[in-house]
Nucleic acid binder design. Structure first.
Lengths: 198, 198
DNA sequence: CCCCCAACCAAGCAATTGCTTGGTACTGTA
DNA sequence: TACAGTACCAAGCAATTGCTTGGTTGGGGG
């Protein structure tokens, strides 16, 4: 359905749609908005796509595939849990840097899109992400790298939320680099903001 | 405009609308949805409110007023910066517990609503909140209670995001209490998740 | 008994929405 | 020259949207 090497125009239109979906929301973006931004009429979009839903679908599924492939690479590597946690965090901030629109759409629209059957794969990806973090955190605790009194479920949620919600304010090429942000965040997460011995 | 002791029915309708706005989004909730949930016809809503916009407006402004009043109480108290930070965090999780719909609406719809003049006060509240946290964090750093190498702007964003985004998964009366969540979060924020001496 | 008024209904209007249909311009290939 | 395929236009339809209008109901105060 979505397969093979995409022609240019289709990809262009998806990028335009992604930006609008990210900025104004899916429901709040009309097909006429997308068409106007692309310099064509709204009906012409249906030469390229079945529906407005198909557009978000293709945007999100393509992104998720890339993202989880890079998570898998980290998991397969031969380092300890704490290092894997660090790498996953850095990787997530890098994803925000490279695909801000896609991340924003997922953050803002996932709950709504999940009410449709065709977006069930988003729930699967959520579960996959949850497993990943829970495994790493549990490993970290039992190996002694992380504090024993951690509630891993809560810690997972805090990490997930703080990392991804950064898409709301992070702008590529403005202020901090995504690497610098990841550094600061990891410092806070791992060692806290209080002075030691407080 | 919004003043004085509210009659019962109006408040009921606002509560119904708030739940729908929080669950499905403002744009994605129709006046017919609200009316149906209230057991009346959509036109009858306009006996109580000017417009759909007026409903969110009243929901959000009322909540923000309460919230910032309680922040002010903390700021006026005579304790050190670190204690004030702790109290503000606890207070925020308590707000999520007591007004989950209002918090969710503000989190999800603020960006969109800010495109209308009438919601300009939301930007003012954001600035007010930013000032509050930046002041407390800067005080904490200069008094030596917080680490000197902190980027206070980034730290402010991390705290703000992590606290408020909890509204996405926190459900009053299920699993952890909001106090327990605040405890865990403060532990992580202040002392980190790594074992000391790592 | 009358009147008032808050709360609501019944019906519908104008605008906006996603999407369809039938046709046209242009480009490359044989 | 004929043909095919891509990318688009022009026009409009059916459904949904927020909101309006004029009228009805039922309970409480005088």
């Amino acid at each position: 359905m979505t397969a093979e090497a995409a022609p240019t125009r289709r990809t262009e239109l998806l990028a335009i749609a992604a930006q609008l979906f990210a900025d104004k929301g899916f429901k709040n973006t009309t097909v006429r908005d997308i068409a106007e931004a692309a310099g064509i009429l709204s009906g012409s979009l249906y030469h390229h796509f079945d529906s407005k839903e198909s557009m978000v679908d293709e945007i999100l599924s393509t992104f998720q595939e890339q993202l989880f492939a890079s998570y898998d690479a980290v998991l397969a590597s031969d380092v300890d849990a704490r290092t894997k946690i660090e790498q996953c965090v850095r990787l997530s901030f890098a994803a925000i840097d490279e695909h801000p629109h896609e991340v924003a759409i997922f953050q803002n629209e996932a709950a709504y899109l999940l009410t449709f059957d065709r977006f069930g794969y988003l729930a699967d990806r959520n579960a996959q992400s949850r497993n990943l973090w829970m495994t790493l955190l549990t490993e970290g605790v039992s190996s002694g790298a992380l504090r024993g009194d951690l509630d891993v479920t809560l810690t997972y949620r805090f990490i997930r939320d703080t990392v991804w919600v950064a898409v709301r304010w992070y702008r590529p090429g403005a202020g901090h680099s995504h690497e610098a942000i990841a550094d600061q965040y990891l410092t806070i997460l791992l060692d806290g903001i209080a002075t030691t011995g407080g």
